[in-house]
Structure formats: C-alpha cells, structure tokens
C-alpha cells in the first residue's frame, strides 16, 4: 500500500516534471520565433493610419486582409511567411504600386481591430513613411530638368518643393527637389514616378533617416520659436559716461 502510493506519487511528480520540461522547451523556441518574427522588419511601409509604434501595430493586427480587400488600387499586400515582414501583416512596396491616398481611406475603414487607427481623418495627415532623395543619383541634382517627383506629389509644393541651387560648371542654377517631413505622407507616388533605373527618391521609415536637433537648441531667427527670456534694458546708454569693463583682467597684470 505504502509502496504503491509512493510510486504513484513519484509517477505523478515525474509526469509533472516532463510536462513542465516540454512546456518550457516548447515555450522557449516559440517565444524566440515570435520575437524573430515580430522584429523582422520594423520598418515595413504600412497602410495610412497604421499605428506608429510597430509593437502596437503588430499586437493589434489580426492579419485578416480586409484592408487589402478594400484597397481599390491593389496597393496593399499581406506578408507571406517568407516576405521578411511580420507574417500576415499588410504592407506595400511603393515602387510597385504606391498609395494613391484615397480621401475616404477605405483600408482604414475596413480595419476591424484599430491596428489602422480610426483617429486619422485627413489622408494628408497620414505618415506611412518619409521620402528621401539620393542626391548622387537624382537627375535634378545632376543639373537636368527632371522634377517629376515634385510634379507627381499629391501634396505638391508642401511635401516636395523645388529650390534653386548654384551649379559648379555654369552660371545657370540647378532646380533641385527637397522633401519636407512636415508634409510628406510617405505615399510613394514620387518613388513610383522616379525615372532613374533604381528610384533616386524612396520612401523609408522616418526613424531610419531622421535626426533630432534636441530641445535645448533655440532657433531664435525662426518665426515659431518662442522667446523664453526677458531682456531688461538697464538705464539709458550714455556715450560720455560709459561704465569701465567689469570683467577680470588678471591675465594682463603682474609678471608673466
């Protein structure tokens, strides 16, 4: 009786141990896979309004493809297992088919989970990515009159402007496109339109290319910089009664 109960107890403990070992091993491999997958390409170009934090988006997206169905231009795709993008999530490749920025944003309306944030009302406020120009390969930057990206841009004049730029070999100026992150939606129409063999303007995630000046810099000459310091005028400046310099002058005194 005693031996029997101790065997069953031992059996039970062994079973528990086996179960725990299996669960722990399986869980480790599984969570490794999940981490690999979820961090596969945090910089995939997502549909307009997709939650900005990739972790939030990855957690919320149910991988149903209703945004893909809703897209009238077949821009969006669902990542297959080998796409190198978190599996089953929607993305697009601007050079193939860009986002044509529908005003009613059907992909956003189709999303059942809120992975594409319904708070986005104006498509111009979407930030799918940021266009960047490779000035070494941009035709305009070589002095040719291209400017196709500027003319194709749906937020024309705001997201891409054309500026003149001095040219080294002649007195004629170059007209070069510049992207402004304040207005670029990352739709990728410029990337699609770029006539170079490989697009010289392409959409990337801003985190990849954008720097940050730092809050402690005050650009006093810009209009929107607030004046944070009070300047007091101490008395009337008088040319005849100029106060002697009050700074220390010890370097000029005494022996060297």
């Amino acid at each position: 009786m005693n031996t029997k109960s101790s065997t069953t107890r031992r059996d039970f403990l062994v079973k528990m141990g086996q179960g725990a070992a299996l669960a722990a091993t399986g869980g480790l491999i599984w969570s490794y896979l999940l981490n690999q997958q979820a961090r596969a390409t945090p910089f995939a170009i997502r549909p307009p309004g997709a939650l900005a934090d990739p972790d939030d988006f990855n957690a919320r997206c149910i991988k149903c493809g209703q945004c893909v169905d809703a897209c009238p231009y077949d821009t969006l795709k669902l990542a297959t297992a080998d796409a190198g993008i978190p599996i089953g999530t929607p993305y697009f490749i601007p050079r193939e088919i860009p986002c044509y920025m529908c005003e009613d944003i059907p992909c956003l309306k189709a999303c059942p989970t809120g992975a594409i944030d319904p708070a986005l009302e104006n498509i111009d406020d979407s930030r799918m990515g940021l266009a960047v120009i490779d000035i070494e390969n941009c035709l305009s930057w070589q002095g040719l009159r291209c400017e196709i990206c500027f003319r194709e841009c749906p937020v024309q004049g705001k997201a891409i402007s054309v500026e003149h730029h001095p040219r080294r070999i002649s007195k004629h100026a170059m007209f070069v496109p510049l992207v402004h992150s304040s207005d670029c939606t990352g739709c990728g129409i410029c990337e699609k339109a770029c006539p170079t063999e490989e697009a010289a303007i392409r959409v990337v995630q801003p985190e990849l290319v954008q720097g940050k000046i730092g809050d402690h810099y005050r650009l006093g000459w810009t209009v929107d910089t607030p004046i944070t310091q009070e300047f007091e005028i101490r008395g009337k400046p008088d040319a005849g009664d100029r106060a002697p310099p009050t700074g220390l002058d010890y370097l000029n005194e005494g022996p060297l």
């Binding site: 896979l33 999940l34 991988k63 978190p86 089953g88």
Partner: peptide, 20 residues
C-alpha cells in the same frame, strides 16, 4: 506582446496564402 498562435499558425498561413 503579440498574438502567439496567430504568428505561427499553419492554419492561418494556409488559409491566408490561398486567398492572398
């Protein structure tokens, strides 16, 4: 922080890739 089965489910992979 991600739906653990949805990310490795062979059911979803089969179904999704047949459709999309």
């Amino acid at each position: 922080g991600v739906a653990a089965f949805e990310w490795i489910s062979p059911i979803s992979m089969l179904h999704r890739e047949l459709i999309y």
